[in-house]
């Protein structure tokens, strides 16, 4: 998967998790939605590692400090090459 396609795929999985999270705020006992969330979270763990290997750390922390954290692109930068 090329770099920009990896980015789009990562963002799609992250968004699916977020939207299910929001749904569960008003449907906290929906077990079907929780199962779906677990499936996405399994995929997320895999693609996050791949993403961070290409783009550097996503959040501040031990890894996310100094040069690795500062590395371009920042979210508002345009990257060359489409997916």
């Amino acid at each position: 998967m090329n770099k920009n396609c990896l980015k789009v795929r990562f963002m799609a999985i992250r968004f699916s998790i977020w939207d299910l999270h929001l749904y569960l705020d008003t449907h906290p006992d929906d077990t079907q939605a929780k199962r779906l969330l677990e499936q996405y979270e399994e995929q997320y763990a895999l693609i996050k590692a791949e993403y961070e290997a290409q783009y550097g750390p996503l959040t501040p922390g031990i890894e996310g400090a100094g040069a690795a954290w500062l590395k371009d692109p920042w979210p508002w930068d345009i990257e060359r090459g489409a997916c």
């Binding site: 980015k7 789009v8 990562f10 963002m11 992250r14 968004f15 977020w18 783009y55 550097g56 750390p57 996503l58 959040t59 501040p60 996310g64 954290w69 920042w74 979210p75 508002w76 345009i78 990257e79 489409a82």
Partner: peptide, 14 residues
């Protein structure tokens, strides 16, 4: 809050 270094949805305006 903790920052996540991505947008929620991709933006690429040519």
């Amino acid at each position: 809050w903790e920052y996540q270094k991505t947008l929620q949805y991709p933006i690429r305006i040519q």
